[in-house]
Each structure stands twice: as structure tokens, then as C-alpha cells.
Design a protein around this nucleic acid. Structure first.
Lengths: 220, 220
DNA sequence: AATCCGAAAACGGTATACCATTCATGACTC
DNA sequence: GAGTCATGAATGGTATACCGTTTTCGGATT
């Protein structure tokens, strides 16, 4: 028998997860100092696991170190988001092409995700399931490093999307159905098209996603 | 006045560099255990910087951790190299397209690299300068994350190429002139072609590079 | 009021120590 | 001889302590 994988046994992991959540939820504002001792005291662990957690978060792009080794919550500019967008546009079509055969043989995980999306109760949940859908395709590509690279930008994407949501509370776009049906169409196409077309479809899907996003006015 | 950047002030950095070199030079064989205490004793530092160095090397793909936290020198299979090749094919054309305007305005760094390549005295030096040439393009793309992703696979590439070299000592291909002139042509083309063509040219350059490589017979 | 400066507090880098777990070795059993 | 189990060494995770550097802040100076 095993423990559920969510509750990590090591304090370094649970510390990085707690900090990640605080950053993604906006509790820790961009630019905030994450001092090792302070975090350690606050979370009731020693500095060692905190230190390790900060390195992890740096790898995930949520934290950056100053020249003197201090860790700060990273600031994300619209220009940063553009970079992330270009990377999705670069990585995901390749994954789509590679994953096409796998998806044709078994798309159950993707379909399950779509069903869950239709039952989502909050906008945040839709966003999470959306990213999970795309990560599933990366996994099905069978390209371990491609998946690793994609994961290395996932947290930054989540941070940006979370901020967007908090800024546009009022809007009641039906993102849920939009996302679900868009993903559904993508799978249908994947099942009937050759890999090269799957690349193009993946690309178009990202472009569409980008256009739906409510963007801020400030360019830079 | 500053210290030369090569000698890093922190022991964690110098430790990771020493280990990186040992792995790339084949002193540490794939599969070898890198026990924290043993490395610490051998290098005359405590376990703390060693631990940090091992995390760094894991990020760079030279080391992998077992489920119980032990660090081993990563095994690289031909299939792993295929993944790396696909990633170059994915990332570098995008960088080429983005870097085109910058290169047109100032290609001096690239030209300098080519000149150095022509003066290289060992095959290993040619390889290093080759990778540096491509990294320069990534830098000139102005896309910080694209560069970061490329760097995250650079060490693995170096490891593979180093192993190839050691396996094919006898061959006396004139890689030096081949590399230099190929890079020269690429720059010339970059200067006269639109960004979309630069993407294609970058892609072709990588494909050519791949075909020149002496590959092993074993597929898996 | 603005600037400079020095002392104290905060902070990061590293070493050492402790403990639970894992791993390797050899004896023992069948 | 193959498999099993116990024991001790090796190993990683974490806490704590020390030290040099950086940062902060209040007071002196202009």
C-alpha cells in the first residue's frame, strides 16, 4: 500500500508546494523577499528544506535570486507572458505531432479531462483542467524532455493566468464550455488527421487560446 | 576590479563545475553513485554545497535521483540523443527567426567565434565553439526563456558528443573547417533572408549537423 | 531637510551533528 | 545451492551553530 502521492513526505517538497501556492494565490506579491529564516520560522521547519524549496521555485520561474543570494517572488511583465506564449507555440505543436498515434489508440484520459472540465465549479478549476489537458498531450508525446521543458514554464503560466483572473473578476465568459468543446474538437481532429496536421491544429488551438485571453492594456 | 568569472566564489558553484567536468570528461561513468559524503570528502567541502551542486546537475540532466534520494550519473541512450536532437530542431529555428534582425545589425560576436573555430587545436575545442556559436544565436534572440531551455539541454549534448569523440578517436574528419564554413554560410544567409527563411535555414543546419555525426550502430 | 556614516540586525553560505531509512554483507535455514 | 533474514555500515533528510557580508536604520554633520 502506498501513500497518496499528493502529500509529499519530505519537508523540502511540502515547503516548496506551500510557497508555490502562496505565490500563485497572490498571497506573496511579486518583488517580495523570501528570506530563508523568515520562511523557515513561519512554516516551522529549518532553513535547509526552505533553501531547497527556493531552488525548486527558481527552476519553475516563480522566484529569482539577486546577486547576493536573496530570493524574491518574480515579477511577471506582459513581455514575460509573450515569451511564455511563444514557448507554448513552439513546444506544444511538436508534442501534438508526436502524441497523435498515442491519442488515436487511447484518448480516454483526455476525454475524462474534458468531462471534468464540463463539471468544473470555478474558473480557477477550469484553468487548472485546461493546463492539465495540455500536459496530458505532452505526456502522451513520449518525449520526456519535451514534457520537462513544458513543466518548467507551467507555474509561470499559472501565475499569469491567476493574476488575469483576479483582475477580471466581473467577466462571466463561459470559459468552461468554450474550453471543453475546443478540446473536444481538437481530439476529434487528432483522431482523423496525420501527425503533420496535428501539429498545425495544436498551433491553431494555442493561437485561439491566446486571443480569448483578456489582456491588459499596458504593453510594456 | 572583479575576479575572473570562471572561478566562482561559492563552493556550491565550484563543486558543481568540478563534478560537471568529471562527468563530461568521462571520469565518472554513467550509473556511478555520487554519494554526498564521498564527494564532500573528496573535494574537501561539506555536504551542503555538494547537495546543492547535485541539484544543479540534475537540472542540467547530468545526474538523476533515485526514489530514495541517491544521485547517479545519468545514462544516456541513443534514444535520449534523439530527444535532444528533436529539441534542437524545435528550439533553434525559433531562436534563429527571432535573432535575425539582431544578427543583421551586428554579427561580430558570431564572426569572432568562427575565426576562433578555424584556429581550434583539438576536436573538443571545435565542439565547444560549435555549441557556443549556437548559444550565441539563442542569446541574440532576446528570448530569455528560450535561452534558458536551450541551456538546460546543453550539458547533455556535450556529454553525448564527448562520448562520441572518445569512441571515434581514429577518424580525422576535418570538422574544424566543415563547422566554420557551415556557420559562415548560415550567417551570410541570415543577413540576406527574411526571418521566416532564417527559421528554415536554422533547421536545415541542424539536420546537416545530425547527418555528419558518426552514430553508433546500436539503436537502443 | 538632505546626506553621510557607523553600529546593530538580518541574511546567506557553510560546517557539523543527529536520526531514520536504505543498502550491503554474511550467517542461517531449508 | 538458493533463498531468507538479521546486523551493521552507508546514506540522505533535517536541525542547529558559526561566520562574513549585506542591509537597515538612527544619529551626527552639513
Amino acid at each position: 500500500m502506498k501513500m497518496e502521492p499528493s502529500s509529499s513526505s519530505s519537508r523540502a517538497d511540502s515547503t516548496s508546494e506551500k510557497l508555490r501556492r502562496e505565490i500563485l494565490d497572490g498571497l506573496a506579491a511579486p518583488g517580495d523577499l523570501l528570506a530563508e529564516s523568515a520562511v523557515a520560522r513561519r512554516l516551522g521547519v529549518s532553513r535547509v528544506p526552505v533553501r531547497e524549496a527556493l531552488f525548486t521555485l527558481e527552476r519553475d520561474g516563480l522566484v529569482e535570486f539577486s546577486g547576493t543570494g536573496r530570493a524574491y517572488v518574480k515579477e511577471l511583465s506582459p513581455r514575460d507572458f509573450e515569451e511564455l506564449y511563444v514557448l507554448r507555440l513552439t513546444l506544444e505543436p511538436v508534442a501534438g505531432g508526436l502524441a497523435a498515434p498515442t491519442i488515436r489508440s487511447d484518448a480516454s484520459a483526455l476525454l475524462k479531462n474534458i468531462a471534468a472540465t464540463r463539471k468544473a465549479r470555478t474558473l480557477g478549476e477550469v484553468t487548472r483542467l485546461d493546463l492539465e489537458f495540455h500536459e496530458l498531450i505532452l505526456e502522451m508525446s513520449g518525449h520526456a524532455r519535451l514534457l520537462k521543458l513544458w513543466r518548467s514554464i507551467r507555474s509561470e503560466l499559472e501565475m499569469w493566468l491567476g493574476r488575469l483572473q483576479r483582475q477580471h473578476r466581473g467577466q462571466k465568459l463561459d470559459t468552461r464550455e468554450q474550453t471543453a468543446s475546443s478540446h473536444e474538437k481538437l481530439i476529434q481532429a487528432f483522431r482523423s488527421q496525420p501527425p503533420s496536421a496535428c501539429e498545425r491544429l495544436s498551433r491553431d488551438h494555442i493561437i485561439n487560446w491566446r486571443e480569448w485571453l483578456p489582456m491588459q492594456q499596458g504593453q510594456k
